Amino acid sequence: MKNLTDIMKQAKALQSKMEGLQSELEALEVEGTAGGGLVRVAMTGKGQVKRVAIAPELMKADEREILEDLIVAASNDAKSKTEKLAAEKMKDLTGGLPMPPGFGL
């Protein structure tokens, strides 16, 4: 039973580290851009949009659709960066071992 006790201790330690990583990701901020930086979206490491910045020259009524597309592109850029960051941190935490379903961030 000593092995089972050791495994349970390791699992509890990993759970504690994962909770810390979740907090760390929530505090991180990533910026996605589109249109050569004309649209910027700031997002937390957990994917929550915090800010949207739009260059004044895009604020023209006849360019509304372009602006909408750029906001979507910047949001997707930021989301992609957060997912990559979370995957890197998870890999560091688990030593590259695959995690079972339900253990993701």
Rank of each mutant, 00 (worst) to 15 (best):
M1Q: 14
K2R: 15
L4F: 10
L4H: 11
T5K: 06
M8N: 14
M8D: 15
K9I: 13
Q10R: 12
Q10F: 06
Q10A: 12
Q10L: 10
K12Y: 07
K12A: 13
A13V: 11
L14S: 09
Q15F: 06
Q15K: 12
Q15S: 11
K17Y: 08
K17Q: 14
K17M: 10
G20A: 07
L21P: 02
L21A: 08
Q22N: 11
L25K: 12
L25N: 09
E26V: 02
L28T: 04
L28F: 02
V30A: 04
V30L: 09
V30C: 05
E31H: 04
E31F: 03
E31Y: 03
E31V: 09
A34Q: 03
G35K: 02
G36P: 09
V39T: 00
V41K: 07
A42D: 06
T44R: 00
T44Q: 00
T44Y: 02
G45E: 03
G45D: 05
G47E: 06
V49D: 00
V49R: 10
K50L: 15
V52R: 01
V52Q: 01
A53Q: 14
A53L: 12
I54T: 03
I54Y: 03
A55H: 02
A55N: 02
P56S: 08
E57Y: 08
M59A: 12
M59R: 09
K60C: 05
A61S: 15
D62R: 10
E63I: 00
R64K: 08
I66C: 11
I66T: 14
I66R: 15
L67G: 10
L67F: 11
D69W: 04
V72A: 13
V72Y: 10
A74F: 09
S75I: 00
S75N: 01
N76P: 04
N76G: 10
D77R: 07
A78S: 08
A78W: 05
K79P: 03
K79C: 07
K81G: 01
K81Q: 06
T82R: 01
T82W: 01
T82L: 01
E83T: 11
L85T: 12
L85P: 04
A86T: 03
A86Q: 01
A87C: 09
E88W: 14
E88N: 14
E88L: 14
M90G: 05
D92V: 07
L93D: 06
G96W: 02
G96S: 03
L97C: 11
P98C: 08
P98R: 06
P100N: 10
P101Q: 08
G102Q: 06
F103D: 14
F103W: 15
L105A: 13
L105G: 13
L105P: 15
